[in-house]
């Protein structure tokens, strides 16, 4: 026989939420302790690096003043005439060239791997991309300086000859009408450094985009195909909207890496300490390459100046990476079809 609940509730029953606790097993305690220590160490190292750079660099910034530090192009710590403007500009310029080349390349590669290639081709391309990510940057630097540069300067020249009317593609000091093959003004430029960095960031961008495209729901893909979609139509309707977080996040993680890239740029550029708007022109610089270049010849005060430059780079890359992971974490939250 069923019971009908009384209409009035028992007055004596406490109707407040009770605390919920659970007794953990020994293993769980241990596991929690180990993971906490691991996570803690990562955070501590991160904080220590930041503190170290700040502690050593802020003094140098204070000597010239923050405003001067941010706007001075020259780098001469011995005469207290130094600033981040030129190298920061160079860093951004090289990273911009790298992104402009790498992003479409990575997007196309990721779409090819997930949507076009099948079977062994798909598998071997995926592992090749991961292998490419493991190539040391010094190797990329050598390849860029001795293989890519001699072959790409003619393209640089062609670009500046035909598109030199776009201000940043202009190259000073050459006569486009000259019959001599004078490519020296086009070497060691931000453009070539950017190309090499692009090759280095394509793998990480590709693998993040591949991962996000691969997770695009089969149900939605089939829904698009069942409406008579072409593969391109399906990609535009389902895969790209779904993978938007991966595209943006992967691109920005690549940007983070491009900003911090050191040795490959160091091997290619011929360093200048002046803002150079012409990307195809000889002479470029970046914060990381400058630190590597100046490190061995620095006394204590010059070291402080380099620390200040390092601090700037640290802050910028942190911001870029935090933005990237925030975008990736938020993508497609709550919008997925249920189930």
């Amino acid at each position: 026989m069923s019971t009908v609940l009384p209409g009035t509730r028992a007055a004596e029953a406490q109707d407040v939420p009770r605390p919920l606790q659970q007794l953990l097993e020994q293993q769980d305690y241990l596991f929690r302790a180990v993971t906490r220590v691991g996570g803690g160490i990562v955070l501590a190292v991160m904080a220590l690096v930041g503190l170290f750079l700040a502690g050593n660099g802020i003094g140098a910034i204070g000597e010239v003043g923050l405003g001067t530090f941010l706007t001075t192009q020259n780098w001469a710590p011995e005469t207290n005439d130094f600033g981040i403007a030129a190298v920061l500009w160079g860093t951004v310029q090289i990273a911009a060239v790298a992104l402009a080349v790498a992003m479409p390349l990575a997007l196309g590669t990721a779409l090819f791997i997930t949507e076009v290639a099948t079977g062994w081709l798909q598998k071997s391309l995926t592992s090749l991309i991961d292998l490419l990510a493991a190539v040391p940057s010094v190797v990329f630097g050598l390849w860029g300086a001795y293989m890519l540069q001699p072959n790409v300067v003619d393209f640089s020249k062609w670009l500046s000859t035909w598109f030199g009317w776009i201000p940043f593609l202009q190259v000073d000091g050459v006569d486009p009408g000259s019959p001599l093959r004078d490519t020296v003004p086009y070497t060691a430029s931000a453009f070539i450094a950017g190309l090499v960095v692009a090759m280095m960031i394509v793998p990480i961008q590709t693998s993040i985009m591949t991962e996000s495209f691969r997770r695009a729901p089969t149900g939605e893909r089939e829904g698009a195909y069942a409406l008579g979609a072409t593969r391109l139509g399906m990609i535009g309707t389902v895969v790209l909207p779904f993978g938007r977080g991966g595209i943006i996040g992967g691109t920005m993680l690549g940007l983070g890496r491009a900003l911090g890239e050191t040795i490959a740029i160091y091997l290619i550029i011929s360093p200048v300490y002046a803002i150079n708007f012409h990307v195809l022109e000889k002479g470029a610089n970046s914060i990381a390459a400058m630190i590597a270049l100046k490190y061995s010849e620095s006394n204590e005060s010059a070291m402080g100046a380099l620390m200040a430059a390092g601090l700037t780079l640290f802050v910028i890359t942190m911001l870029v990476n935090i933005t990237a992971s925030a975008i990736m974490a938020r993508s497609r939250s709550g919008a997925e079809s249920e189930g």
């Binding site: 939605e220 698009a224 919008a335």
Partner: peptide, 13 residues
Amino acid sequence: IGMVFQKANPFPA
């Protein structure tokens, strides 16, 4: 020849 699937699959975007 259209098709409706077991699991509803509207395009969420």
